[in-house]
Each structure stands twice: as structure tokens, then as C-alpha cells.
């Protein structure tokens, strides 16, 4: 199992836009470099990307929740 951590402190979002579907659901397959969420900080958005191929086992943070730098936001299998 691999962990995907937020590189930044800020607010975690699971979708690119409130109107759009989420980037990934649990059980979805992802490739290295795929975006799984956004972090908002300093009025800018930074993508959180998977660093490996795999299946999203769990999303650890709720949409709109505040995260710390290095906090695990998802687990990959």
C-alpha cells in the first residue's frame, strides 16, 4: 500500500469545480501523475497527484477539510 500526502497545508478539494464530478472514487484505478485532489492555499490551487499506478483504496480526507503539509489524503493499492 502507498500513501498519497498533501505537499502543502490548506483546504483539500476532491473536485476541480463545485459543479464537476470528483477526480477519483475509492476503487478507481489511477496512473502515476493523475490528479486526485486540489489544495487551496494563498489564493491558489495546487494539484495533488498520485506518484504511482494503483487502485485508490481509501480517501482519508473529506471534501473541503483543512489538511496539514505531509498529511495523508488517500491510500493507494
Amino acid at each position: 500500500m502507498k500513501e498519497i500526502a498533501s505537499p502543502l497545508p490548506g483546504v483539500f478539494y476532491r473536485r476541480p469545480d463545485p459543479e464537476k464530478p470528483v477526480y477519483v472514487e475509492e476503487g478507481h484505478e489511477v496512473k502515476a501523475g493523475d490528479t486526485i485532489g486540489l489544495i487551496e492555499v494563498m489564493k491558489s490551487f495546487q494539484e495533488v497527484k498520485a506518484e504511482d499506478d494503483g487502485v485508490i483504496k481509501s480517501i482519508k480526507v473529506e471534501d473541503g477539510a483543512v489538511v496539514e503539509a505531509g498529511q495523508v489524503v488517500a491510500e493507494l493499492e
Partner: peptide
């Protein structure tokens, strides 16, 4: 007296 929290709007 208060402990203030830094919001994401901090640059």
C-alpha cells in the same frame, strides 16, 4: 487574549 488561527488566505 484570543488565539487566532491563520486562514488559507495568508500570503
Amino acid at each position: 487574549e484570543l488565539e487566532w488561527t491563520v486562514t488559507p488566505e495568508a500570503n
